[in-house]
């Protein structure tokens, strides 16, 4: 039962990845692409957690934490860039 749930979760995660990727590639504005990118990275955190569960290795949790940190910084930098960045 639990295995089935996790497989379903994996399928849903891939589906979300596809939908966020659609927004990332389609745009139409730069802000839309960053929204898609933000969603992609958060979904990736879920993917990494799933990998940690399946492999049973706790080290992936650190990967997820650092990944979340870097994606946050990436979104901030990109947002400042489209804002104009004079400040």
């Amino acid at each position: 039962m639990a295995d089935l749930f996790l497989i379903l979760a994996g399928v849903l995660t891939v589906l979300t990845f596809a939908m966020a990727g659609y927004r990332f590639f389609k745009g139409p504005t730069a802000a839309d692409r960053i929204v898609g990118f933000d969603a992609l990275t958060i979904v990736s955190v879920t993917g990494i957690i799933l990998a940690a569960l399946i492999s049973g290795r706790a080290i992936y949790l650190d990967v997820a934490l650092v990944y979340a940190l870097l994606s946050f910084l990436g979104v901030l930098v990109a947002a400042r860039y489209i804002e104009g960045g004079e400040e």
Binding site: D3, F5, A9, T13, L15, T46
Partner: peptide, 15 residues
């Protein structure tokens, strides 16, 4: 696993 898949379902709805 049930809570996990519920979370994944919310992610998909957000997508």
């Amino acid at each position: 696993a049930f809570v996990f898949v519920t979370g994944a379902a919310f992610l998909a709805l957000g997508g």
